[in-house]
Design a protein around this nucleic acid. Structure first.
Ligand SMILES: [Mn+2]
Ligand SMILES: [Mn+2]
Ligand SMILES: [Mn+2]
Ligand SMILES: [Mn+2]
Lengths: 239, 239
DNA sequence: ACTAAAAATTAGCCTAGACTAAACATTAAA
DNA sequence: TTTAATGTTTAGTCTAGGCTAATTTTTAGT
């Protein structure tokens, strides 16, 4: 590696960017009075807890995070900016692969997870413009703008809905390729009209109707990942 | 980094791939009885000679090259295969950026130099098919096929031509973005019809006519990088 | 044939970013 | 309130891939 001189500011590495991105994602799942935990980062990044501690020290030195030992970690503005850039790169690339190169929604994440770190601003910008400046990716997740602002409208999950109220699928979070393929196979896509008929007790499976057709039993955890808007609001919310 | 276990074969790193690619490129400039020199690799890769020696040892251990100390280095079949894959990735990406995202030929190399290492086979294949399975990149360089075979037709350079014989530009090798922009600015593109009117002595500049229009003085070294076919052979050879 | 220059290697060092094992701090349970 | 479990940090290692300085080998010039 070309040794980065002490004075010249070197670009953040792939590792740093992934840490910052995951911290961002875990922040939203963290109670407001706590920071993101070392353990959770270690788990998501598939790395030892000691490695996380070690990296957090470096990120804190560069003022990308605030790290209070034993309390947890929070992004600073500059750290958040880098995280948002990764998410923007990721989601625009995923959108492009689906729209222009025939990828399906279960294939894009793997590709994007690596490439997000190596796409130039120019390339991301050109893909985004070529697509008509989309605001959401193929999973319905919002694309941050170039300044790092992101839509943050909380949408209810299928598992938390009143029964017999029609809704439309607006976003599907964090599912594995296998699960995404399964959803597609039962006809559940972004924009699908869903009616929850019933939920079995003890966090049991949901019974749902998809586009007025067949009933399907859907695992409770899957229902947590599927976020919806009221059916009347927008017929096909983003895409 | 996830420690690669001793038994599981790990993918070659970016550094290894760049070494193999540059070795491939230097092989064609090396006399048949010699190997590629450490010094030349160090220069092209912008690393120290000691670093090269060090890496060559590792590449030789994996049987990607044959390294005879003080003599030089040659690719093995498996090393060449990796080199060709990088060149294929690089050239297909460059082609795609020009054809689909409005890049000009001077902008693509920087992007491709990094991304070549991170593109999946699937993505490269889809870009290639989307483009209609091109055989040459935007600089006229041949694209290796998936098995690593590459067209190897030696084309004469402008600097070595008979005067007053019309030719067409078929390939432009290894020029900087600045030089490529200059060539475009004087109307010299792939497929341009050129007549060399004169060459000043002592490797002096060439006097050339471009598409029957104005005369331009062209530096001898630039003329070495511009390769041509006879004007009658194909009107617009690849592109 | 001898010597000087060029090229290559060796030896020793460094940083990034992993790891394990052990020590320490906090929280939850008894 | 003491203890056990959980989470975090520290200490010490390791590999990849760089570096410089010193040494060795080859090549070229006289
Ligand atoms: Mn994704
Ligand atoms: Mn990533
Ligand atoms: Mn190139
Ligand atoms: Mn490269």
């Amino acid at each position: 590696m070309p040794r980065p001189s002490a004075t010249v500011k070197t670009a953040p590495s792939r590792a740093w960017e992934d840490y910052l991105k995951i911290i961002y994602k875990l922040e939203s799942l963290t109670p407001a009075n706590k920071g993101v935990q070392t353990k959770d980062l270690a788990e998501r990044l598939a790395v030892s807890k000691a490695s996380v501690t070690n990296m957090l020290k470096k990120l804190a030195e560069e003022a990308l995070i605030q790290h209070e030992p034993y309390y947890g970690v929070r992004l600073t503005d500059s750290g958040r900016k880098i995280a948002m850039k990764m998410i923007r790169n990721h989601r625009i690339l995923e959108s492009y692969l689906v729209a222009r190169l025939g990828y399906s929604w279960d294939e894009v994440d793997e590709e994007a997870e690596t490439l997000e770190h190596f796409l130039s601003d120019k390339l991301v910008d050109r893909m985004w413009n070529d697509l008509g400046q989309p605001t959401h990716d193929p999973h319905g997740s919002p694309i941050p703008d170039v300044d790092g602002h992101i839509e943050n409208k909380p949408l209810p999950a299928l598992s938390h809905l009143e029964h017999n109220t029609p809704v439309r699928v607006a976003r599907i979070k964090n599912r594995s390729p296998e699960e995404l393929r399964y959803l597609a196979s039962i006809g559940l896509h972004l924009g699908s009209r869903i009616v929850v008929k019933n939920q079995a007790p003890f966090n049991g499976p949901l019974l749902i109707e998809i586009d007025g057709a067949q009933l399907h039993a859907l695992d409770h955890r899957m229902g947590l990942a599927i976020h919806v808007t009221p059916a009347h609001e927008a017929d096909s919310p983003h895409v």
